[in-house]
Amino acid sequence: MKGNNNKVYRHTKLEIAIHWLTAVSGIALIISGLGEMPMYKRYNITKLPFLSFLGSYEINLVIHYLFASLFIFAVFFHIVYHLRRKELSLLPKKGDLKESYLVLKAIIKGEKEPPHEKFLAEQRLAYVAIGSVSLVLIITGLIKTYKNIGPVVLNPDFLMIVTLVHTVFTMFFIILFVLHIGAFIVKDNRELLKSMFTGYVKYEYAKRRHPKWIEQIEKTSK
């Protein structure tokens, strides 16, 4: 087992860096993306201190462009990196739907959760959800960006669908983002939150909540 005795190594520095790059750029994309819609002026958000810049479509476009390139970098890096290292513990397994229901029920009722692997069943499902929504946003975003590099005239009906998908998937992205943050209302999950900064979780925590994960680490390190 990596780390010293009462800590378990959960995320590498690189993984942490990539996660926060997605998080920061994802949030900036939500803010600047909504700024590409006629919203902030209408709802007087531009009148709040320091936020008047949000009223400019031009500034929002530049912010959106900048963070889109970072977001795309982080997402593609993540996919290729972990595929190449065969680190697939975030991919859903059979029975995850049922298990995540049981976990949720246990959390709500304050009962004991079923034993977890490295990630909870709902994390694996959420991963696929936010991952595919992100990919759709990236693909449609790339098409939207491509048509902006000059007088490129693509089929307007195709572009309408691309644009509507980009806009609607933004709503999905925001919902998943809120759920992702909302997960840290559950006290046990805050141990995981710490790990996204330090890279470690406490051994007692892991042993109690993620016994299947610990079992696996202990097996391979022997």
């Binding site: 889109a68 970072l70 982080a74 593609f76 290729v80």
Partner: peptide
Amino acid sequence: KNLAKLILLSPFVAIISAFISA
């Protein structure tokens, strides 16, 4: 326009650097 072109390049930069660092 140039910023937009940079975005179109970023997937390739990411794939290559992930491949190398992995």
